[in-house]
Nucleic acid binder design. Sequence first.
DNA 1: GTCTATAAGACGATAGAC
DNA 2: GTCTATCGTCTTATAGAC
Lengths: 224, 224
Amino acid sequence: MSLVRKRKISAVGTKKRETILYAAEKEFEFHGFGGARMQRIADLAEVPKANVHYYFATKQDLYSAVLERIIGLWDQTFPAIDADDNPAKVLIGFVEQKVEFTRLYPRATRIFTSEVLYGGLHLSDYLQNRMTQWTHNRAHVIKQWVANGKIKPVDPFHLIFLIWASTQHFAQSEIQIKSVYQKTELTREDYDHQAASLATMVLRICGLDCKDSAAKTSLRRHCK
Amino acid sequence: MSLVRKRKISAVGTKKRETILYAAEKEFEFHGFGGARMQRIADLAEVPKANVHYYFATKQDLYSAVLERIIGLWDQTFPAIDADDNPAKVLIGFVEQKVEFTRLYPRATRIFTSEVLYGGLHLSDYLQNRMTQWTHNRAHVIKQWVANGKIKPVDPFHLIFLIWASTQHFAQSEIQIKSVYQKTELTREDYDHQAASLATMVLRICGLDCKDSAAKTSLRRHCK
DNA sequence: GTCTATAAGACGATAGAC
DNA sequence: GTCTATCGTCTTATAGAC
């Protein structure tokens, strides 16, 4: 509009566009794509429904934009790892980062789960490429650790799936966990406790816990 | 109708009712409640749509019937456990049963996950009562094992969640796993391998794996 | 119990004034 | 860019003949 700064129509980063995206996340989180309603998204964002369609032509476009944002969050959260790294440090770091991600972005975690659950039609490109590469990269490093005798023999994929599933579970089955704990909200302490507990279990799986590896001094650095 | 056997209208167990229920499961599996369409369910069951409404007055009723059937499956699958039981045997048995359940009823697993993911509104009674009791019962036994020195100290709830999440993951993220494995179908062998791998990891978490417990002969029964 | 036809309303999307 | 009014379609559910 202004002569100085011309904004592209529907440019990424418009304030109202962000408001609508945020409202859409909340709607998709609890209703999925099929159950989501454009009217409810408009109401949540406090704009007329037609305004939503101005920024996102179709419901499909809006959903895709939400998913892309989530994948962007993933990508900037988990660093690459190397076979020379200390296994205990890397594993503890991964568990802590994953738990923290779930705590900070439970909504993103649930929408991602929902999409994968229903067949991942809108994510097939991501799942077949970046996601698969990411997993194989980590699995390869874990294999090397096993080959070098740094950790006990373990199926690398199942170890990754175990960590992945356990952390996702806290977001995706939040209702179930609240029921079991008889709480109405999960606190920061609950997440910290989960991170510590899961880290301990993962280290035991790899034979890296302090009591078991008393003889292997090189692996004891992470112990107090 | 007949003078000999009078059937209740909409009685549980009618053949056509079962056909419709089965079709509904397939529809809810990939579309969720909001995305499911009564017309598609009718088409899958190969009956006119009005016939579906004859057996299940509303979409809500049909969905509730599907959920009840799933809970029934859960209930008859997992036996109670006791603190006097052998921890290794019980844990291996639980992992194997859970993996087998996921393999036999991936549809039930996915619908249950979907319902919990979206807030479990139709399951709140089950989650708050039977489900919570089930979990506390198992957690209590695990606590006793820890107290009696039968297994390493471990958070009982997180151990249960870990097993639960890891097994569910195989059904609920099937697409993701197929992508990583670059397969179009998961085979019986994949499930057997998962059961064996997860059992090994769980035993290590509890300090019950063969190599670690070489001194504890009483716990070696499960080793070949 | 079964099935065709249709009611009643909700839904995504758009036209067009401002 | 914004917003009201509305279009055409899809969807659940029912009425009523057989």
